[in-house]
Design a protein around this nucleic acid. Structure first.
Lengths: 150, 150
DNA sequence: ACAAGCAATGATAGGTCATCTCATTATGGG
DNA sequence: CCCATAATGAGATGACCTATCATTGCTTGT
């Protein structure tokens, strides 16, 4: 391996419920339902689709809970090419980037030192101070036949 | 300069009106008004704000015209950290990336071979085929006092 | 210049995604 | 158990964008 790159396909997510506890939030039935569903969906998911799958939970609560996990860093929000947002469980606790399959929407994480090195290089060339960055790779994972088949 | 990087701060934009002509679109008063305003706003701008500044032009027309320029590649659409979209004149005709000032919203373009090299490297390590990518740098340009002063 | 054909326009309705409001409900400590 | 308060949810509201469709106004042929 010439580069330090790490995929996160099978990284176990820390229990979302623990995130609630440690954040001083109550463990309620709606939140447990959302957390449970989220942990099944390592794939990228939209807030609205999630809400549809949980008819017993109010839309507002779904959004609130997602933002709660987002602020805790337990999930990531990323922008797709068409401007909508998808969320994804964050296995890696620190800075990383995402790949999104343009066919099936599967999201994966990767961390590559080369990316961070590049940003450092660019910071010397670019006027101003780089505060943060976003890198998203849109891929075709070539392993999504049945999903695309719908 | 050790790397091949080019900023586009003062690149003159090809006349947006020419884009219309070459695309077989009519040059109408509303479109001219929009094009004219766009060329003044090298800064990032939102479609809605643009519409507000052109009360004489219908919102639908503003959006339609923006999409027209977008499809022609004359302007770029980019996602901010908060999920909204801003547009920016594209001086560079080919693939490039953007810096967005988190203070004043100024958008600049840059093209760096190092970025493309990085993507090539990553493609060897990442499962699937990289279809496209998005890299945005959020910067503090440190030259936006009066704008921030409001 | 005039008419005709059709692209373009704009007022407004509608759609999507997300947040806000606030009366009601559930949680968890004492 | 009781209470203070966090959390919920139905619906309103809002931001942002697209669809509809009757009207307007370019552009070309004559």
């Amino acid at each position: 391996m010439s580069e330090s790159i790490s995929m996160a396909s099978e990284a176990p997510s820390p229990s979302l419920l623990e995130v609630l506890e440690s954040g001083g939030h109550r463990s309620t039935a709606p939140r447990r339902a959302i957390a449970s569903l989220l942990e099944k969906k390592q794939e990228g998911f939209s807030a609205d689709a999630l809400s549809d799958e949980l008819p017993s939970v109010g839309r507002a609560t779904v959004y609130r809970t997602i933002n709660l996990f987002l602020e805790a860093g337990a999930i990531c929000k990323l922008a797709t090419m068409n401007g909508s947002h998808i969320y994804s469980i964050c296995g890696v606790g620190h800075h990383h980037h995402h790949t999104v399959c343009v066919e099936c929407g599967a999201v994966d994480e990767f961390r590559a030192d080369a990316v961070e090195r590049l940003i450092s290089e660019l910071s010397a060339e670019i006027p101003g101070e780089i505060v943060s960055h976003r890198l998203e790779l849109f891929v075709n994972c070539h392993s999504c036949p049945e999903i695309a088949g719908g």
